[in-house]
Structure formats: structure tokens, C-alpha cells
Design a protein around this nucleic acid. Structure first.
Ligand SMILES: [Mn+2]
Ligand SMILES: [Mn+2]
Ligand SMILES: [Mn+2]
Ligand SMILES: [Mn+2]
Lengths: 219, 219
DNA sequence: CTTTATTTTTAGATTAATCTAAAAATATTA
DNA sequence: TAATATTTTTAGATTAATCTAAAAATAAAG
């Protein structure tokens, strides 16, 4: 139906428009996909001709309903494959993203629906990101906040991360800061917004940067 | 490492040279891949430059050790994915080939090795074809013959098919002629080489064409 | 051993996705 | 607002994979 490249553009535009709200700029897509702005302009014209994005020169793009539907489908594929790799094939959460980037483009509705059933209809992927159902509806997470927003003595369970880069995930893994772990804020230093937290009976110091990227459910 | 197209050419050359013995001709590859002969010549030059095939103009091609290694790797991927689809995701044996054609190109040694372990190190795919191990070694099947070669009153267990086209597989499925079934040759008609066989206590007539494409282990 | 038929290769085009360099539009700042 | 900087688009090339049509090589028939 659509080429792998087209799908990757749609996915990039989708997540950029979620993150930045407004129209998505040529340069931001170029950054995200690690290509040149001129290539983006070309592809945008193609996507626009196919009614997958709405585009006005110099003003940026937005996904149409049609374009968004495809983007969400690919995201669904991506996240279900990540669950498969972690739950069934013994992969760690920092090893699955690149592979899922390949697997997400395999074309078969039956495959992905059967895979979903095989995995027990998971609602979140190994990084805590929501998995769209077959209609494209994203599950809502219960009330949650970032560790950065938590106060001293507050307690919470890790339910997701905002950054899925390998180095960050490995850092968390090494400190046993994985999904489902319960932590308590022991101290907050106002001069740099770093925190000391309690985990497994031990204390760890975490930078503001780290705290901003951990999502918790506070009871 | 190699493009999807290159991999498909190598796979085609591999199976054609197994089937036909001698040098593989440009036209036979074109037929197999449903492309024009001129495209084949172009690609062969590319593969030759990469030392994946040995090629002399007008004389056809053969895989080098390097080329064969890649072809066998892709076949390993293909067959393991087929097992996954049938054993874990409820696919029928006539539904998996096209999907496996996509999945076989996903690049990750760890993925395929973990998948193999997850599946319990299967030796044959859903069509009875041998699955190369991680070193590229193909398991040997026990003594077997085609139904066409069997004599009256001879008994055997279906262990594979020589033709994996959807229509043929569906035909077999409808008659419950699936892997593992035991059948007995009840009668052979010499005028057209058709046979009446016994299966599940019933009798079925099968054409020579069909008999030539069913592989059995005779006790 | 010629002539004819078939197969294979070459030449030249096309399409998708990318790039560099330059031009045009928009945004910033003095 | 005018000058400057940044962003975006256009123009022209490149690479991979394919095609059609024509030329060259090989094989088959007479
Ligand atoms: Mn991912
Ligand atoms: Mn994820
Ligand atoms: Mn197959
Ligand atoms: Mn098979």
C-alpha cells in the first residue's frame, strides 16, 4: 500500500505534532529522520498528493485523518512487536526499538491481530507507551506524573519513560529502575532539582534530567 | 548489509541451482522472480562484483560460498517464521508463505536465534522443508519417497510437500492430507498413474500430479 | 555448415528516494 | 522598516531497481 519510507514520514509527523502541538516544520522532520530539508519537501508533496497530509508551502504539515490512521497502525505494530520481543524472546527493553523499526512495516492485519491475542492484549509496551487497539484507540494511563514533579516523601510506581534512548534505558536498568518498581522521594535539592530516592531499601541520587523522564503512578 | 532485492535474487538462484543442478540461466531467474531478463543481467553483474555469484557472460550463474551462506540464512529465517506463524499464531500452512517472504528479511541474528529457541528448535517447517541450523547445516530427512513412487498396499506417513502453492495446499487440507497423516495405497491405475488411497478409514482418488508432490516416510 | 530461432546482453528511459547548491520566502533584529 | 539571518523550496544530480527495444551471442534446424 504505502512504502516503508512514506510510513516512516507519517510516523515522524505524528509524533512531532503530538509533542509540539502546532504545524510540523520541515526542519523538525529532517532532524527526526536524519535527512535533508529538501528531501522532506519532496516527500511532503508526495504525501500531500495522496491526501495523507495537509500542507501549505512554508507553513508546515499536519496529518489528515487518513494519514493519522496509518501512523497509528504502524505505532501499534511497533509496540506489539516490542512486547513480543521482551515477553517471549528474552530481549531487554533497551534492545528492541531498532528491531521493531523493521518489524513494524510487515504488512498483515491478521498477523498483528493474532500477535496481539497471543500476547494477551497488552495495553502498554516495554517502555510504558500505550498500544493502540485495532481501531486505533489508545488506552489512557491512570493518573500519573514525572518523578520530577513529585514531592518529598511521595511514593509511586514506575509506569513509563519519556525517553527511550538505549543509554538512558541501560542507565535505568543498572539502577533497577524498571517498570513496576516502587520508589519514594527522600530528598529534593532545590539548587539543581536533583533527588535522592529510596528503592529496594537503598538510596540513589538522580539528576533533574533523569527525574523528568520517569513516569510514575502515585497511589 | 544486502538489500532485500539482492537477498531475493540469491534465494532464487539457490533454489534453482538445487533443482536444476547446472548453471542457472538468466531466463529461469527472470521467470522465478517475475522480472525481465535484462533486469537479471544487471543485478547479476552487481552480485558478481560483490563476489556473491560467479558469472560468465551467456553461461549463467552460480552462488559462491559467500552467496550461498546468505541464501541459506534467508531460508532459515523464512522457515522459522513459518513455524512461528503456524505453531503460535494460528495460521494455516497455506497462509504463511507470503508473510514469511516479508519477515525473512528482518535483520537480527539474535532475533532469529531466540525465535528458534522459543519454537523448540524445529527441524522442519509447516510444509516439511528442512530448517538450516545457525551454521547453515540442513537436517536430513529420514528415508522418504513421493506418493507417486509407492506401490499398492504400501503404507506411509506424510512428511512434506514438493509444491507449496496455496491452491495445492488448500486441496490437501480439504482432504485432510496434512503432515503426520498415515495413508495406504489401495490401488494404482496404470493408464494415468492415478491412485486410490486410504486415509482415516475412507478412500480418496488422487491424480498423478498430486501424488508426485506428496512426500512420505514409509516404515 | 548455413539459416533461423532463442537467449542474453546492451543502450537508453523511468521511478523512488536521496543529496548539494542556489533561490525564494519568512522571521529576527537593529 | 530595512538589513540580516534562518527556513524552506527549487533545480539539477545520483543511486538502485526496473522496463522496452535493439544488438549480439549461442543454440537448433534444415
Ligand atoms: Mn520503540
Ligand atoms: Mn516502545
Ligand atoms: Mn514458504
Ligand atoms: Mn515452507
Amino acid at each position: 500500500m504505502y512504502t516503508r519510507t512514506e510510513e516512516n514520514y507519517l510516523k515522524a509527523i505524528y509524533s512531532l505534532s503530538k509533542k509540539e502541538g502546532k504545524d510540523v516544520s520541515t526542519n523538525s522532520i529532517a532532524d527526526r529522520l536524519d535527512t535533508k530539508a529538501s528531501s522532506i519537501t519532496d516527500m511532503i508533496k508526495k504525501l500531500s498528493a495522496k491526501k495523507l497530509v495537509s500542507y501549505t508551502k512554508y507553513k508546515g504539515v499536519n496529518l489528515t485523518k487518513k494519514g493519522e490512521k496509518i501512523a497509528v497502525e504502524i505505532i501499534r505494530n511497533h509496540r506489539l512487536w516490542e512486547v513480543f520481543l521482551v515477553d517471549k524472546l528474552q530481549f531487554k527493553w533497551d534492545e528492541v526499538h531498532e528491531l521493531a523499526e523493521q518489524l513494524e512495516h510487515v504488512k498483515s492485519e491478521k498477523l498483528i491481530n493474532n500477535l496481539e491475542a497471543f500476547l494477551g492484549f497488552p495495553k502498554f509496551d516495554p517502555h510504558g507507551d500505550p498500544i493502540p487497539d485495532r481501531l486505533g484507540v489508545l488506552p489512557k494511563r491512570e493518573e500519573s506524573k514525572t518523578l520530577d514533579e513529585m514531592l518529598e516523601d511521595e511514593k509511586g510506581v514506575i509506569v513509563g519513560v519519556k525517553n527511550s534512548e538505549i543509554e538512558f534505558l541501560q542507565f535505568l536498568e543498572e539502577h533497577d529502575l524498571t517498570l513496576g518498581k516502587t520508589i519514594t522521594v527522600q530528598k529534593r535539592f532545590s539548587f539543581d532539582s536533583s533527588k535522592v530516592i529510596g528503592l529496594n531499601g537503598e538510596s540513589i541520587t538522580l539528576s533533574e534530567q533523569v527525574c523528568k523522564n520517569i513516569i510514575l503512578k502515585t497511589s
